[in-house]
């Protein structure tokens, strides 16, 4: 009996993990090349982004409503269309020892910045961008004021 309960927990945990990981992970990595520099490595399940947007207090949108209304359809279109593309470097800028790269990699958008001071790497699954933009747009349309 105890084993069955434990098995139930394992399955629930497995399904929960699978649900959270179905859209991949948002990865943020910041490395400061200093002795006391910050090294930050953050891994967040992408499924949490639209979930957070759903429960974000409405006051957070105030003051940015116009911008958000303009940007969300663009984000949705961009993320939906980028999914269809092969992996590609979209933008690459090198200026002296600074290097910035924006690429579509796998199912996500990757931004990488490298300089003698720091290395920043951000990876956001496109599905998360699309879902989050859809949620925010839906909330804006449901409550226009």
């Amino acid at each position: 009996m105890l084993a069955k309960i434990a098995l139930g927990f394992v399955i629930t945990a497995g399904l929960g993990t699978a649900y959270l990981l179905q859209d991949g992970l948002i990865r943020v990595s910041v490395e400061k090349y200093r002795k006391d520099g910050t090294n930050l490595h953050l891994y967040v399940p992408a499924e949490l982004a639209p979930l957070a947007a759903r429960f974000l207090p409405r006051d957070e949108f105030r003051g940015n409503m116009k911008d958000l209304r303009e940007v969300m359809p663009i984000l949705r279109t961009m993320s939906a269309e980028l999914t269809k593309l092969p992996d590609s470097v979209l933008v690459e800028v090198r200026d002296g020892d600074e290097h910035v790269r924006v690429a579509k990699n796998g199912g996500g958008l990757e931004v990488e910045e490298e300089s003698p001071r720091e290395h920043v790497h951000v990876y956001v699954p496109l599905r998360a961008i699309y879902d989050t933009a859809e949620v925010v747009q839906g909330r804006l349309e449901a409550n226009p004021n």
């Binding site: 980028l82 470097v89 979209l90 933008v91």
Partner: peptide, 17 residues
Amino acid sequence: RGEMVRVNFPVALAEKL
């Protein structure tokens, strides 16, 4: 400083955006 810029963008995506 050896500036270099590369942009690669599908025209169809630009149209939709």
